[in-house]
């Protein structure tokens, strides 16, 4: 059981690392959104499921409720993250930012 939890935690950390490095490395605003919003969503999915599994070690009603709340957080993140990303993209389009194309300098 512990091994499953640790493996899931490490997978989640890899996704979070990809998100953080992607924010630093990608060349412009639009392409930075790709790792920022979505790999963080995937990372929180894996890490929160791992923590919910670990929380079920002593199986009582209280721990079951806590784990269900963790699942609710995952569902909420999956619903809200695309909406937040879309809000940021919409603001960028209306502010007139042009997307980076091949051969330009990174901004």
């Amino acid at each position: 059981m512990d091994i499953i939890v640790i493996v899931l935690l490490i997978i989640g950390l890899v996704f979070f690392t990809g998100g953080a490095v992607g924010i630093l490395r990608f060349p412009d605003f639009y392409s930075r959104l790709h790792p920022a919003g979505k790999m963080d969503t995937m990372g929180s999915l894996f890490m929160l499921i791992a923590l919910a599994l670990f929380n079920l070690h002593h199986f009582t009603l209280a721990t079951l409720l806590t784990s269900l709340k963790l699942i609710v957080i995952v569902v909420f993140v999956f619903l809200s993250s695309p909406t937040a990303i879309h809000g940021i993209v919409d603001a960028g389009v209306r502010a007139g930012l042009t997307p980076w194309t091949k051969g330009e300098k990174r901004r």
Binding site: F15, V21, P27, K38, M39, P99, T101
Partner: peptide, 26 residues
């Protein structure tokens, strides 16, 4: 599908010559 595509972006992120691989467009 989200998982497969995440792996693709993860590969792009850690690729040393990322700027030659990506081609952003609308």
């Amino acid at each position: 599908q989200i998982f497969l595509a995440n792996l693709h972006v993860l590969f792009l992120t850690f690729h040393p010559k990322m700027l030659d691989l990506i081609d952003p467009q609308i």
